[in-house]
Amino acid sequence: MTSLLQVSNLSKSYKLNGFWFNRKSIPALEPLSFDIQAYKTLAIVGETASGKSTLAKLLVGAEKPTTGNIKLNGQMLQHGNFKQRCQHIRMIFQDSGTTLNPSLTIQQLLDEPLRLNTDLTELERNKLIQETLQKVGLLGEHMSFYPHMFSGGQKQRISLARAIILKPQVIILDEALAALDPSLRSQMINLLLDLQQQMGLAYILISHNLGIVRHFSDKMMVLCKGRVLEVGDTQQLLKNPQHKYTKKLIMNQHFKLPNN
């Protein structure tokens, strides 16, 4: 089975502009490689400043990688070619309240990616928006609502709708579940898992809640200061962590797997 997304040797360093000999570069992410298949989830775990968000930015194309390349279905993704990338890799952010434009209705919000990326007519677009809203558990009538009329959980569903409306193959969840209340969070996890089964999505989950990581992901990767410490099957890794840092993370959350 070929992998859906293949990342090889990807790295990022930021340059500090100084005078001639004083120029420094700060490595935010050291070269790393991984690949994901459809229907699978990769979890990325690490503290602040471990390079998790940099990795997410590189994958969606918000930043230009210093070295390395990203292949989707065997096809190289060029930096700057957003038409190709937007269709297939989408991202959901942590705070859904601030990522939705308050002056647009939900219809206008969801219409935008369709207008920019597809050749559908207005009627087809409206139909697709309604279908997508129903898919994430909202109603078609919600189209004419503004973001402030929704609760936090519903807003997160709208950002999910915006992510899946182009029928992508990879969705990046950058702490998308952290700010939600527990009961809404489990609703959202159920919804994400259902969509994964229906649409064959691959998720990249960035999180520090190991409980969710255990439940949600197939593989996990531990990052620390831009370096990959461990990669492996989630169950195996959590049961038998090799690196000291991973052990510390697990201890910190009082996390215990049943011995069976």
Binding site: S183, S186, I189, N209, R214, H215, F216
Partner: peptide, 16 residues
């Protein structure tokens, strides 16, 4: 609904 308290439930199953 907390995934942490329910270690025995299978992975990727629906949460209550």
């Amino acid at each position: 609904s907390s995934p942490k308290a329910n270690m025995q439930i299978p992975m990727k199953s629906r949460l209550m």
